[in-house]
């Protein structure tokens, strides 16, 4: 099963890479780009299991490794089995 974890810096944590991206977009002539925030997407391929088990396991993975909750927040989406 496919699970997508989205990890982003908390609000208020400086994101200099995002700022550089916003600056470059403005330089390219894309007026009106006020800010940009860079984040991470981690796509996991797990053995099939029921959704609540998967959600609990991935949540534990996020807390133990995938996100540093001092500076980041995360969200998990589980793709429907197809």
């Amino acid at each position: 099963m496919k699970v997508v974890v989205h990890v982003q810096l908390r609000e208020g944590v400086l994101d200099p890479q995002g700022k550089a991206i916003a600056g470059a977009l403005n330089t390219l002539g894309f007026a009106g780009v006020v800010d940009a925030r860079q984040s991470k997407v981690i796509a996991l391929d797990l053995e099939d299991m029921d959704e609540s088990t998967a959600r609990a396991r991935v949540d534990e993975m996020c807390r133990k490794l995938l996100a540093n909750t001092v500076i980041e927040t995360y969200s998990v989406s589980i793709e429907p089995a197809g």
Binding site: V13, L14, P16, Q17, A20, N68, V70, I71
Partner: peptide, 17 residues
Amino acid sequence: LTEAQLLPGALLRNANL
């Protein structure tokens, strides 16, 4: 050590990149 939570806080990318 911060990642292992032996010390508080975190180290981010340098502000000026």
